[in-house]
Design a protein around this nucleic acid. Structure first.
Lengths: 207, 207, 207, 207
DNA sequence: GATGAATGAGTGTTCATTCAT
DNA sequence: AATGAATGAACACTCATTCAT
């Protein structure tokens, strides 16, 4: 789907507002005002408010695909591949935090059923990527057998989302004064913590 | 605060609807209809829709306090204490999933600022409990030093929430056909997976 | 009609509120809160909000009757009798300003038709009092013939009410800083001005 | 401010209803019904019910300015100038009776504080006009010195308003059967009475 | 005699959407 | 292709009053 400049601006404004105030908490007038367009434009361009939401999702997910396909072929130890993926995941989720916020709010909404198929597809691809790298590691004897690969994402993404959800708490606990401090903590400490956790899980022999 | 039977029914109905459709997506008329009361009762009992939300939070959090204070004294290995906490956490979050859903949606809402102090307090207490048990384990030489205790909760709760958020995906991946299957998977597989992950993190020596 | 202490307090509170915020602008809850009684009491004691208004009117008018009947017999010049009446009028209207405010707002209200018969009766009696004194003055040759006695009240009461209506303007024009200043201006300057005006009208021979 | 035809119709309908039933006694639905428009139009056009009131006031006052500025220069005796002003005042107040009714009800309302500045300005201008003509008359020796010019308006407008307030009483006293009779009485008898009163006050030498 | 609980009707306002242009 | 005007439906909330106790 092709969007013109005005449409893209609407998408961006709406994405931020939907993330900040929820879908139902955002009015089309609000969007129109900030995007500096006529209210009627939203219905005109996207059909309805709900279809605008879908357009946002499509638009964002389209640019979210993992660029890690050839990571498998690289000649580095599997654990480093895993670490690279984790880093990239966190970077991506963080960068697209708004749409993640929206999706995770809407996914459990019983009223609306936005098409999350592409999103699910994405996750399944990520799962497959993990799977093949874990298998590589297992073949090389680096990783333990009996790893439930599908449950790696919850640890990685779940931790990050929970960290974001409780921003205030962690700002307080770790004395993060600025937005930059917070972002840096995620980029460094949290990322390393998650990498360490996954590594432990993969390598540690449970007795 | 004491609530009578009708008030409690309203709280329950509203809690479910807020979780399922969001706060802004739920109208007081909807609540009134399902709770089989007059619309005016909500304002009459709780003051406003927003205060109803606060009442729900207060009501739920009041009954959510950890009953694990004396766990520290028990004469079992620290890792088993950790496992017990994880099990109890997952049980609690799962049991109070609705309010967690609401809170985590509302926490990041820039429009409303519901009083999450008690909720934060709860989390801080949980953190302290973890801290003292980890210290026990470290003294006994069971656990590694340099454990970032504050980042244990994100792994545990984050994983669970993410699992719930992607219910459909995991039902598909693990062939969970009924609600019971899903619940059982959380209670057994997911719980064990998280326990295993935390154990690995605590015990595994990073080289 | 007899009212007990609580009823009288309600009447007083309601009178002030009706005067300050209008009948429709005052809620029974507001009255109940200030009078420190249960909301239901108003319906219980007076039947309805509208009947409360009627009760206020009845209660006040009952105590408003002129005590000037024997003024006619007094052995003083008619113009002094007129001056005494003017002074007494202004005193009365000022003292019962609240009920005058209410009545003059409600009199022109097409929705409600409160019983203003007693009020009208009062005015007619005042008119008759004026009439007999003016006749005395005319007989004595003090006053001009052809005085439209019925139009004396509009000048006296009308001036006072207009002065009150434009309180802010006159406080500004005459530099009246306190409530006392304002009251004193009415008691002295305005009263004398009105007396002078009526005197001029009665005595001055129009050529 | 420019209003289109439909807006003007709303203003007119609302003006009448506000005058007849009070601001709080009139619902926007009532206005919408009579003006044959959608309820939402009132908020859409004017922002709110309260702003509608302000619009009415502005709209009316805008067309109420005195066209008597050049009266001062005319070559007629001052007392005739005064009589012309009185006549014009009564004509104006009578013509704009609704808005006067509203304003004088709302001016003393402690809840709302509509912008009456323009209205006050108007009154101050009228006061200045009176002042200069009275001074003319005093210079020519026609009028007495020591005239409190600011208290002339209360006599003129106050009398008229009081007459209107007690419409029923005066219809009864003067046997005015039709609306026309009433209007004519104001135009002739009452106007002359007020003119005579003011004349007496200005010319009569108080001994 | 007095009142807390409860309610149906009504309040002003905002909503997403449509339509004529 | 784009938009200002307009609207019916829905919104949260308040109203005066009733009723069981």
């Amino acid at each position: 789907m092709e969007f013109n400049d005005k449409q893209i601006e609407i998408l961006q404004v709406a994405e931020q507002l939907f993330a900040e105030e929820g879908f139902d908490g955002t009015s089309v007038r609000e969007i129109a005002k900030i995007a500096n367009i006529n209210v009627a434009m939203i219905s005109y361009y996207f059909g309805s408010k709900e279809k605008l939401l879908e357009a946002i999702v499509m638009h964002r997910i389209g640019s979210m695909g993992l660029k890690l396909e050839n990571l498998i072929q690289e000649n580095i130890p599997p654990i480093e591949k895993i670490n690279k993926i984790i880093e990239y995941y966190i970077y991506q989720v963080n960068r697209n935090r708004h749409i993640h916020q929206i999706l995770h709010n809407e996914i459990s909404n019983k009223k609306r059923h936005i098409n999350t198929e592409t999103f699910t597809e994405l996750k399944k691809n990520n799962f497959k990527l993990f799977e093949s790298i874990v298998k590589q590691g297992q073949k090389l004897g680096h990783f333990q057998p009996n790893i439930n690969v599908a449950l790696l994402s919850p640890i990685i993404i779940g931790s990050l989302l929970y960290f974001h959800m409780n921003k205030k708490l962690y700002e307080d606990l770790f004395d993060l004064k600025t937005e930059e401090d917070f972002e840096n903590y995620i980029k460094n400490e949290l990322t390393q913590h998650i990498q360490k956790t996954i590594k432990a899980l993969l390598i540690y022999e449970d007795k």
